[in-house]
Amino acid sequence: MSDPNASMAAAAPETVEKETYLGSDLPPAPGDKEKSRSLWSDAWRELKSNKVFIISLVLIVVFLIMTFFPQVFTFGKDPMACDLTKSRQAPSSEAWFGYDNNGCDVYTRTIYGAKASILVGVFATLFTMLLGGFIGVIAGFFGGWVDSILSRLTDIFFAIPLLLGGILVLTSFPASDSTNLYSEVAKVVLALGILGWTSMTRIMRSSVIQVRNADFVVAARALGAKNSRIINKHVVPNSLAPLIVLATISLGGYIGAEATLSFLGLGLQPPVISWGTMINDAQPYIRVAPFMLFFPAFFLSIAVLSFIMLGDAVREALDPKLR
């Protein structure tokens, strides 16, 4: 788009027969340099000055680097290179977090363990956000019997606790011999997502209901807009904020749930490394080698906390919806 300028506007008699027949009572103020500010950019500016947001963002960036470039932190050590003679040796300058039962370096494994946990968290969140958000939009926007059916369905799934559902799904799966990280992650994502979408649906449905009869939707209908346009341009952009907040907070929850399932021996299976499997490995030796438990559990808590803090900060920034 070219830069708007006055001569161009004055040369366009297309839609109106005559320009500026109306003495404008709003003379363009010469010193008027206010820029275009969308609500998203307002929220972003508020976030940038929020300490909690900055801290959680830095932590999350660190975890993301661990996920994709673990070598950065491990100085080229291989998490699978274990030496049984070093079994359960305490932390030292050589191995900061000590050695586990098989003589593997706990520090290296903790770093490598971030990948599975973060991937499960991110994909479970994306999966539930898309599925739940979609069902919520349909139920909230169309209402009537569509809403009745979808809402009852949501209630039924909502009534089953997330972990119980995950356990049910994972135990009824035929135990796979797969040792591939991604197929293992996909399995856990499905187990969590199959129940996790319900809270996303509920929050999306109620925020869509608040927006669907808004005056600007009435105006769009009066212009002849179709439902697809109303949903995409008007309803979804104005009802997304609560879903984004919930998603950020849920991400931490899914990481915790993955650890719980893996700890129970149902989630990710060795040789896949995750904080949950490491905690599982450490369990028999809590008394003799507490460091085996402490470090992965600490990383897990920090990761969960970062996402919850991020969610809180985002909620604060998005909350005053109409400024």
Partner: peptide
Amino acid sequence: RAVQDLLEV
């Protein structure tokens, strides 16, 4: 241009 005209009007 039409939008700008409308705003002006």
